[in-house]
């Protein structure tokens, strides 16, 4: 925080933000254009804005169903992962158990697994359980991405809570579980919330499992649904841009509200403090 920000800096900043946002800006502008302009003109602004692409995006494919599926699957995944992972992270950081290093190593190794390496047995498992095209059929495989992520980030947050609080709770006669529930959990709430956002985004963005396991249109999630707008012969850019705008809105809102927390969560694992 040493250097003063001059005019040149703000120009750089403006260009930087513009370059990053350009794809969104262009996609948004396209979604408002009438069909013939999309294919034959590179003008930035249309003189004849219309919402036809939005209507078409919502009617040709069940976009709102995809959205609902994504919300339900991601939320349930987040709740389950956080509940299980917060207990594990608490024990790993604050209780006198053995093999902590081994267990954290296992968690870290799990976070590095390529999903493609486990997709076929998971596919067989979900198929045998008769869970294809259902919510549990995605929530179970989503544990593979959410559980290691949640344990890893939560461990960092739990570690930061002062140990003195626990000591005094212990002196007052609280059991370890009571300490966890009454002292640690409320104090760790911001960290837990941050982790939840990151887990939610990870589940929301998952593609490979959703593509192979839920193949019925009514059970698809957003990432897969979006990639289904194209047909063999035509690519309806109007529909695609409109659908992109619609599905990006929830993420933009989430980011705008929780940006500080997200940054804290992302950097917690990589920066020593």
């Amino acid at each position: 925080m040493n250097k003063k920000a001059g005019l040149g800096f703000y120009i750089f900043l403006g260009i930087f933000v513009f370059v990053i946002m350009f794809p969104f800006i262009w996609v948004f502008l396209t979604s408002l254009k009438p069909l013939d302009e999309i294919y034959y003109s590179f003008a930035w602004f249309t003189t004849d804005p219309s919402l036809n692409s939005y209507v078409s995006a919502l009617t040709t494919r069940p976009l709102m169903t995809y959205m609902a599926n994504s919300i339900i699957v991601s939320s349930l995944t987040t709740i389950i992962a956080i509940a299980v992972a917060s207990m594990a992270a608490y024990a790993l950081t604050r209780l006198p158990i053995k093999f902590k290093g081994t267990i954290l190593g296992l968690v870290l190794a799990s976070a590095m697994f390529p999903p493609i390496a486990i997709i076929s047995p998971i596919f067989n498992l979900i198929n045998d359980l008769g869970l294809r095209n259902s919510y549990p059929g995605l929530i179970i495989p989503y544990m593979t991405i959410s559980m290691p992520l949640a344990v890893w980030i939560l461990s960092t947050f739990f570690k930061k809570i002062p140990f003195e609080l626990e000591e005094s709770a212990k002196l007052d006669g609280a059991s370890p579980f009571q300490t966890y529930r009454k002292i640690i959990f409320p104090l760790a709430a911001p960290g837990i919330f941050t982790t939840a956002i990151l887990v939610f985004i990870a589940a929301w963005n998952e593609y490979l499992f959703a593509l192979t396991i839920n193949t019925q249109d009514s059970a698809r999630t957003i990432p897969v649904g979006i990639s289904m707008y194209q047909s063999q012969y035509t690519v309806p850019w109007g529909d695609i841009t409109a659908a992109t705008v619609i599905v990006t809105i929830p993420i933009v809102v989430l980011v705008l509200i929780f940006q500080r927390r997200i940054v804290a969560g992302l950097t917690s694992g990589s920066v020593k403090e």
Binding site: P23, I201, N205, I222, P223, V224, T244, L254, I262
Partner: peptide, 8 residues
């Protein structure tokens, strides 16, 4: 934050 499939 947006899904990779959407950005693709």
């Amino acid at each position: 934050a947006i899904p990779t499939a959407v950005s693709a």
